[in-house]
Amino acid sequence: MNWALSIFYYIVTVLVVLVYGLLLYAFIAKTMARVQGRIGIPIYQPFLDIIQTYGRRTAVTHGYMFDLGPVFRLTGGLGTLAFIPVIYGSEIFGNFHFAGDLLLVMYFIFFGQLGMALGAGESGHPYAPMGIARGLAQMTAFEVPFALAVIAVFMQYETASITEIVAAQQGSIYNWTLFTNPFAVLAAMFAFLGMSMYPPFDLVTAPNEIPIGPPTEYHSAYLSLLQTNRAIFAGAKLVLFMNLFFGGATNLPIMVLKTWAIYMIPVLIGVAFPRFKVENSIRFFLGVPTLVGIIAVLYMQYWGTV
């Protein structure tokens, strides 16, 4: 493998995903506004925001960990993306998926969150840790159905290699995990609701109580890094779900279509629901979704191979 080339390909992927992520963000914002009877932002607004925040000329810092927080965060996003093959069979969008498997990706997701949490913590603003505490607590809960779903997927394909999982789903729509392992997908989608932090699980950044949660104190260039990450990370996450459950994508349009469809699920549910308290969402995730996850695993263990 040519290193220079693969780094170049990776940069291309990152840029594509970034643009896609920002567009998606704008689209969602607009959708939500429309549902709520507002006009909403123009579709290019996120791009303007990023450019604007990068261009800020003043900034305050609370210390070196505060500085490093966004760096960690963006590394997390970039790294997660780096280990996921975005488009199956594509040399350009294959990334560094050969360095590690599904387990690596699942754990690498935490990298950015951890760094972010630390950086926010140093700001000294009580809302930041409050939001982080809520976020972490909620995360522990929704990880359970998600992990069970992933395990069920693993059992189904007997590998932790994302590429191979995608490969196994090729050929027909009925080969998708969605149809071959429906319980796992259901559990995973429950978890996805929590992961996306749309209502009813958006207390972490609850706009009314603790304005924007963990990133409270971030601004200017710091904020721009966070925004960049938000777009990339959302893209990476969606691609991961797509790869695991929805047959992956063999070309860019399909990728865009599938991820957009997946993303609409939490959005549409989000607009229709009020907000849960953290303890409620913890209980929720450890309830039905976990049960579904367990069913998925048991289903695979006893009937999956038949």
């Binding site: 305050v60 210390g63 963006l74 700001s123 000294g124 890094l225």
Partner: peptide
Amino acid sequence: LFMAPAILLWLVSKKMKVQKVKQFNIVFA
């Protein structure tokens, strides 16, 4: 990958005045 945003941040912050604030200065609160 860690270096990339770090350098980015460093580049961006070079052109602006980063001000270190005291402990109790929670700016955005």
